[in-house]
Amino acid sequence: VTLFVALYDYEAITEDDLSFHKGEKFQILNSSEGDWWEARSLTTGETGYIPSNYVAPVD
């Protein structure tokens, strides 16, 4: 499982989006939707859509 880490803070715009803070880690559930990925936060356990350009793979 490839994990991703937030590079910036993000505040949800719609109820389907997931708010997060810089440094938060995610498991990507679906990355086939283009620039918005469905993800689960490993910090909160919540799922929602995140902007793919706000995250990077964890080394």
Rank of each mutant, 00 (worst) to 15 (best):
A12Y: 01
S19Y: 03
I28S: 01
I28V: 10
I28H: 01
V5L: 06
G48Q: 02
A12T: 04
T14D: 12
G23K: 02
Y8F: 10
A6L: 01
L3R: 05
L29A: 05
T14H: 15
L18W: 03
K22G: 04
L18T: 02
G23E: 04
D16T: 10
A12F: 02
V1C: 09
V1M: 14
S31T: 14
E38D: 05
H21N: 11
A12N: 06
A12C: 04
V55A: 04
G34T: 14
S19L: 02
T43R: 13
D16R: 15
S52E: 04
E24A: 05
V58N: 06
T47C: 09
E24D: 13
A39C: 05
T43Q: 08
P57F: 06
E33D: 14
S32K: 12
F20Q: 00
V5W: 06
H21P: 06
P51Q: 06
Y8K: 09
V55L: 15
G34P: 15
H21A: 15
Y49C: 07
D9A: 06
P57S: 07
S41L: 08
L3V: 13
R40K: 11
G23I: 00
Y10G: 01
D59H: 13
S52Q: 07
L7S: 02
P51M: 08
L29D: 05
V55G: 01
Q27P: 00
V55F: 10
K22A: 12
R40Y: 11
I13S: 14
D9N: 10
S32P: 11
D59W: 12
K25H: 14
W36I: 08
V5M: 09
D17A: 12
Y8E: 09
Y49H: 08
S31E: 08
P51N: 11
N30Q: 09
S32Q: 12
D9G: 05
L29G: 04
G23H: 05
L18Y: 04
T43H: 12
T44R: 04
V5G: 03
V1L: 13
D16W: 15
T14I: 06
A56Y: 09
E24F: 04
A39I: 03
S19K: 04
E46V: 10
G48M: 03
E11C: 09
A56L: 08
I13G: 11
S32L: 12
G45M: 07
A39N: 00
F4R: 02
F26T: 00
L29N: 05
N30H: 09
K25A: 07
L3G: 03
Y49P: 02
L7M: 09
T44S: 09
G48E: 00
S31P: 08
I13F: 09
R40P: 01
E15Y: 10
D59C: 08
G34M: 11
S19R: 04
T47P: 02
Y8W: 11
A56C: 07
I28P: 03
F26N: 00
Y54C: 06
Y49Q: 09
T14P: 03
I28E: 00
E15H: 12
F4M: 10
I50F: 01
S32I: 12
H21W: 08
T47K: 14
E46T: 08
G48R: 02
G45V: 02
D9F: 04
V55D: 00
A6C: 02
I28L: 06
S32G: 11
L7A: 02
V58Y: 15
D35R: 09
G23F: 05
Y54D: 01
A56G: 10
Y8G: 06
D35P: 11
V55S: 01
Y54T: 05
R40T: 15
F26K: 00
A39E: 00
F4W: 14
L29S: 05
T2G: 14
L3A: 06
E46M: 15
A12M: 03
N53M: 10
V1H: 12
V1D: 13
P57K: 08
V55W: 01
K22T: 08
E33V: 12
R40S: 07
D9E: 06
R40I: 14
T44N: 06
Y8Q: 09
S32R: 09
S31Q: 14
W36E: 04
E46N: 11
V5D: 02
I13L: 13
Y49T: 07
Y8P: 00
V55K: 00
S31G: 10
E24V: 03
P51Y: 07
Y8L: 09
T14N: 15
W36P: 06
D35H: 13
Y49M: 13
T44P: 01
A56Q: 11
T47S: 09
A39W: 01
V55E: 00
I50Y: 01
D17F: 15
E33L: 14
S31A: 15
T2W: 11
L42A: 05
I28D: 00
A12K: 08
P51D: 05
Y49V: 07
S32V: 10
I50K: 00
T43D: 14
I13H: 13
T47H: 10
S41V: 06
A6M: 01
W36L: 09
L42I: 10
L18V: 06
G45Q: 07
G48N: 02
D35F: 14
W37P: 01
A12Q: 06
K22V: 11
W37I: 06
A6Y: 00
L18G: 00
Q27N: 08
E33A: 13
L42N: 05
I28C: 04
T47L: 07
G23C: 05
F20M: 09
D35T: 12
V5E: 09
D17E: 15
V58M: 13
T47F: 07
R40L: 13
D59V: 14
F26Y: 01
V1Q: 12
F20G: 01
I13C: 07
Y10N: 03
V5N: 02
S19N: 06
I50V: 09
D16F: 15
W36D: 03
E33N: 15
T43F: 09
I50Q: 00
E11M: 14
P51H: 09
G48W: 02
S52T: 07
E38N: 09
D35M: 12
W37D: 01
S41Y: 03
F4E: 01
E15S: 14
D17K: 14
R40G: 02
N30K: 09
P51V: 02
F26G: 00
E11T: 14
L18D: 00
V5H: 05
T2R: 10
T44C: 03
G48S: 02
Y8C: 08
T47R: 10
K25N: 07
H21C: 08
K25W: 13
W37F: 07
E33G: 13
N53A: 12
E11H: 12
F20W: 01
Q27I: 14
W37V: 05
G48A: 03
S32T: 12
S52P: 08
G48I: 02
N30W: 07
V58T: 07
S41G: 03
V5A: 05
Y10F: 12
Y49R: 15
L29F: 07
F26E: 00
S31F: 15
L42R: 03
F26D: 00
D35S: 10
E24Q: 07
K25T: 13
V58K: 04
D35L: 12
A56K: 11
S52A: 15
N30C: 07
Y8S: 07
E33F: 11
A56H: 08
S19D: 04
L3E: 08
D9H: 06
Y54V: 05
G45W: 07
S19W: 03
W37C: 04
S31D: 11
A6S: 05
L3T: 09
E24R: 01
E33K: 15
L29Q: 05
D59R: 08
N53K: 15
F20C: 03
L29W: 06
T43C: 08
Y54E: 01
G23W: 05
L3S: 05
S31M: 13
K22M: 10
L7F: 03
I13M: 13
W36Y: 11
D17R: 15
T47N: 05
I13Q: 13
G45A: 04
R40M: 13
F4H: 06
A6D: 00
T44V: 01
V5C: 05
D35C: 08
F26P: 00
T43I: 09
Y54G: 06
T14Q: 13
G23Q: 03
Y10I: 01
K22L: 06
T43Y: 09
I50D: 00
E38C: 08
E33W: 12
P57H: 07
Y8N: 07
P51K: 07
L42F: 07
L18H: 02
F20H: 01
I13W: 08
S32E: 15
A56W: 09
S41F: 03
W36A: 05
E15T: 10
